[in-house]
Design a protein around this nucleic acid. Structure first.
Length: 423
DNA sequence: TCTGGGGTCCTAGGACCC
DNA sequence: TCTGGGGTCCTAGGACCC
């Protein structure tokens, strides 16, 4: 059996841990730049606030219902996620961290009869240790565990745990489950499947394999098998590093000046380089892209991007910034108002076996030592304490994000921890 | 006025090889 | 008029996830 633990309204729950007065109140958390709604408490959902809606469209609703609004605080959510995952890891034999708020658990070899009690105990312990409420779905496959989890969330009668452990329960669960809520079925497939009269997960598994393959390729077949109870998607305990790494931001205000864009791109590049070093890898390709504001149909639009191959793969911010700067120069056109920029690094390989270049003049051994010192200093004194000259101090940033409603970094910033203790 | 930021996998088609 | 048969690699685009 496979379990799926999913934190309830995760970002909202994190805010509630440090401000208990939010319990029972409608609460929402916004995306970067205070743009869209990305998390909602049950009370906010009940008000009809949809996932992903731009916040300016629901200003009135927020005011009349006294909805508590938060900017996203990823330092806080990341740390709370780590606490939840650590708690689970201590209590189960095998865990796969699937996202910031979800983890699969391998219950292979567990005595079936002891599972319900054990599962209850697990959710209670997570709540007690971290303050975060979670639900647990258990079933023979990942896709079915996802469905079980959804039922555990939806019906309080389950007391946070739903187990699909018999043919009868599986059939019943599938018959009541909308096809678009199945893991792996998105907007496009919903449309297509509805067109063919498929409304529920049960309708879906009545089709034959070759039809599914023709319409949805092997990924569709995997979903189809998983729903039938045949496991196709294994638990991955040691996820390999990322194959692509991207840092991009929408700007608080639109930017036309090259030097300001360059600053932002230098920051994004340094961030990519840091993420690369975090997984002990290097990148051979760097892509820089710009976006004008796609919502302003009346102004000229321009979405350029450029990809550069590095002579030697690298995770050195100085070196990567050099190529990013060259790239930006090539795609930048004056006169446009840019709303977003970003950097992607790809062709990622392990830092321990880099293919050298015959003509490389850099002393890479020495460089690695410098980088390791920089990382040590920045871990101790904060990100970007030591940084490239291309990245001016934060206070000079003209391209900063809006985050009007941000809470404190209660668990990771010493000054905020002091504030919390005084409270 | 105001609209996020990350990722993955799969397939088809083109360019190339012998 | 008629034009083979087998591969590989790469990329863009489309689907999905949180």
């Amino acid at each position: 059996m496979i379990g799926l633990i999913d934190c309830n309204n995760f970002f909202v729950s994190c805010e509630r841990v440090f401000d208990p007065s939010l319990a029972g109140q409608p609460v929402i958390v916004l995306s970067n730049n205070d743009g869209c709604v990305v998390a909602r408490s049950n009370e906010a959902k009940a008000l009809g606030i949809k996932m992903g809606i731009p916040v300016f469209q629901i200003r009135e609703l927020i005011e009349t219902n006294h909805v508590a609004v938060f900017s996203s605080n990823y330092s806080l959510y990341g740390d709370m996620s780590h606490r939840v995952m650590t708690t689970i890891d201590r209590l189960v034999p095998e865990i796969e961290i699937y996202s910031i708020d979800e983890a699969f658990i391998n219950f292979e070899g567990f005595q079936m009869s002891s599972l319900p009690d054990y599962a209850q105990q697990l959710t209670k312990t997570i709540r007690k240790n971290t303050g975060i409420p979670v639900c647990l779905g258990i079933a023979p496959t990942k896709t079915l565990a996802k469905i079980a989890n959804r039922y555990a969330k939806k019906y309080p009668g389950y007391k946070n745990v739903c187990i699909i452990d018999s043919e009868e329960k599986r059939v019943k669960a599938l018959k009541c489950f909308p096809i678009e809520d199945v893991w792996g079925i998105g907007r496009q497939y919903k449309q297509k499947l509805n067109y063919y009269g498929i409304e529920t997960a049960w309708d879906f598994i009545q089709k034959n394999e070759s039809w599914i393959r023709k319409q949805m390729s092997v990924t569709g077949v995997r979903t189809w098998l998983e729903l039938k109870g045949i496991s196709c998607i294994a638990i991955e305990q040691n996820p390999s590093g990322k194959q692509n790494i991207c840092t991009s931001r929408s700007f608080g205000e639109e930017i036309s000046d090259f030097p300001v864009l360059l600053e932002s791109v230098a920051y994004f590049t340094a961030s990519c380089a840091r993420k690369l070093r975090g997984q002990k890898s290097v990148a051979g390709i760097i892509t820089v892209f710009l976006y004008t504001n796609r919502f302003k149909k009346e102004v000229p639009q321009y979405y350029p991007s450029i990809t550069v191959h590095l002579p030697v793969p690298s995770a050195n911010p100085g070196e990567l910034i050099k190529y990013a700067r060259m790239s930006l120069k090539q795609i930048y056109r004056p006169g446009y108002k840019y709303k977003k920029a970003g950097v992607i690094v790809s062709d990622i390989t392990s830092a321990s076996n880099v293919q050298c270049s015959l003509f490389d003049a850099t002393d890479r051994h020495k460089q690695a030592k410098i980088l390791s010192v920089i990382d040590t200093v920045n871990r101790k004194y904060g990100t970007d304490t030591l940084r490239s000259c291309a990245q001016p101090p934060n206070c000079f940033r003209k391209w900063s994000l809006k985050s009007q409603y941000i809470s404190r970094r209660y668990t990771t910033n010493i000054n905020d921890i002091i504030v919390l203790n005084c409270k």
